[in-house]
Design a protein around this nucleic acid. Structure first.
Lengths: 346, 346
DNA sequence: TTGTATGCGTTATCAT
DNA sequence: ATGATAACGCATACAA
């Protein structure tokens, strides 16, 4: 039963024509007037033999793989724990499917000794790359870009020429903190989403600081704590806050995932949200609206992030249009219940 | 700067040897005694030219793509909303990476008119497939299997020959319900994880029923409600329960994701968990432990599911070992706080 | 030990 | 309107 795949030659033989004719018919090549009769014969033969052109062969002759690479610049366990990632992927893969591209997904940490990122492109496994969450100074990406690799970033990098799709983290954080301020809060603590080596973390902290200062408050480092994308880190950070002398009336946690752990710590201590303390998140992961209480947060258009990145990349590949500017998408303040209404200091 | 990729011939020329020698050196071909000197020359030339073999060319001549396909049998929006999926993917991609395979990920709903699943294999985009969450009667999968496609299922199907990796949903559900019973509950409602067209849903319901009957209770359809994998459906189902005359003291919700919405409905009605009602989940999604209260549930070894599926598939591909038996992994009852301690009926 | 020749399955450029 | 034929880049059996 080890029936070999049928090749174009098999189809040609079965239809009594040449391989060329088969190719013309099956690819609907323009300008080739082929008699309806032979067209039918070829179609039927192909159908009968269950013929499908071999991807590798076509790839070789066209010089294209029709595969996009989506690379996460993180350790696999962290990469797959990102609750916004599936939505980004959905955006990418929807566009990819539309244009008949496939999607290879792969977490490649920045310190990967095997240079998997470079290899992926240089071995021509993919036609182009979308790289998510690069470190601010990611040399491998810069090298790849300089080697003419079509590459779109999702996240910022300290190298201006590579175009990226991102949100304005600073402004979004300002929005979040301003909301807290507008509710009357004066002592607002901060828990970061990740290490400040990532530009998104740095930018969100900056936004927190600016909003505070713009409102006439002093920025106090004793109110700043750190998460690392995990609920556990949020739990720990919250413990630290509770044990410190910070005593904030509100906390801006720059990641809903981190906030999850923080809320858990609060729950254990019987501290009520928002009655005892207001909590503001960031990301709007799919679960935030289902938490008790539903979490106020900043909505990131994750699907659109992926959608736009894929579109820019495919435009680059298909029309050689190298995008000139970054694509910055809007965020939105989502007011739910975790910040309560107006805070009354006593 | 449009520097073409270097080919094996370029390396050969640069090193002053033949293409064959280059191939032998770079592939560490056994039995070919090559002078250390030429070996070095070749290595250096390859390095200098930044040579990487073309994936398509190698793929063609070896008759292998070194790509695995991971297909979800669902609409993209549902596929990407599955909170266990990232862990399954992590398991698959870890094994894939180890064996130098790449991973193409693609949601292909059962009713896909373009036969994307068949095409993926027949065009030889992938060497083999892992298919997750098939419908009980998925003809396309059966056809593909009969066409000698290496394919591993993740989930059950009404066709015995295709090997799968799965959990025993029925027994796991029994475990969950038995826990509730052991706490003294007598009126236990059920909310399904999805439509009963999926074998996992059917099996979990069966487990619920069996546990009840084994304990001497009668199975009452008035206590059975349905979810569709989404929190919204859980919210709705809970509304239905509260408005019905069911009045359960405990609810077994066969999906943590669905439970999320149910908990939300409870929160809105100021019904306390577990004081007023006990909630038992299923899946142990990464967030369950962070909910308030932390959710008691059934742990599914998602990572291991992916890991085993990938291993079976690669064994098949590399050693032609077609797995003969299904691989059933163990689940675990996770007792947290949402079921409280012993229930006292009054 | 290294070089030569051939095939893999397409597509594309020529002729006819 | 259709049929040869070259080319894509690599691996390998065989020859030298």
């Amino acid at each position: 039963m080890m029936n070999k795949r049928a090749t174009a030659k098999d189809v040609a033989d079965a239809a009594g024509v040449s391989r060329t004719t088969v190719s013309f018919v099956l690819n609907h090549t323009e300008g080739m007037r082929i008699s309806e009769e032979t067209r039918q014969k070829v179609m039927q033969a192909a159908e009968a033999l269950n013929y499908h052109p071999d991807a590798a062969a076509r790839s070789m002759v066209k010089g294209k793989t029709f595969i996009l690479g989506f690379v996460i610049r993180q350790e696999p366990d962290k990469a797959y724990a990102d609750l916004l990632l599936p939505e980004v992927m959905r955006g990418i893969s929807e566009v990819a499917s539309e244009h008949a591209y496939h999607l290879i997904f792969k977490p490649v940490p920045p310190a990967d000794e095997k240079n998997s990122l470079t290899t992926l492109f240089l071995e021509h496994q993919v036609d182009g790359l979308i790289v998510s969450g690069p470190l601010a100074n990611d040399q491998e990406i810069v090298d790849l870009f300089n080697a003419n690799a079509p590459i779109i970033l999702q996240g910022r990098i300290d190298y201006p020429n590579i175009s990226s799709v991102d949100i304005n983290n600073r402004k979004a954080a300002e929005k979040a903190v301003n909301h807290l301020i507008s509710l009357g809060h004066q002592r607002i603590a901060f828990i970061s989403n990740a290490s400040l080596n990532y530009s998104s973390s740095k930018d969100r902290l900056t936004g927190y600081r600016r909003a505070l200062e713009a409102a006439g408050f002093v920025y106090d480092e004793a109110l700043v704590f750190y998460g690392d994308r995990t609920p556990d880190s949020g739990y720990q950070a919250m413990q630290n806050i509770l044990r410190s002398s910070a005593k904030p009336t509100a906390i801006f946690i720059a990641s809903d995932t981190v906030a999850l752990g923080s809320l858990n710590a609060l729950y254990q201590e019987n501290i009520r949200v928002p009655e005892d303390i207001a909590i503001m998140g960031f990301d709007d992961i799919p679960l935030s609206k289902h938490l008790a209480p539903p979490l106020s947060t900043i909505h990131i258009p994750a699907y659109d992030l992926g959608w736009n990145a894929a579109h820019l990349l495919i435009k680059w590949l298909e029309h050689k249009e190298i995008p000139e500017r970054d694509c910055i998408l809007d965020t939105e303040l989502i007011v739910r219940e975790s910040c309560g209404s107006r805070h009354k200091d006593n």
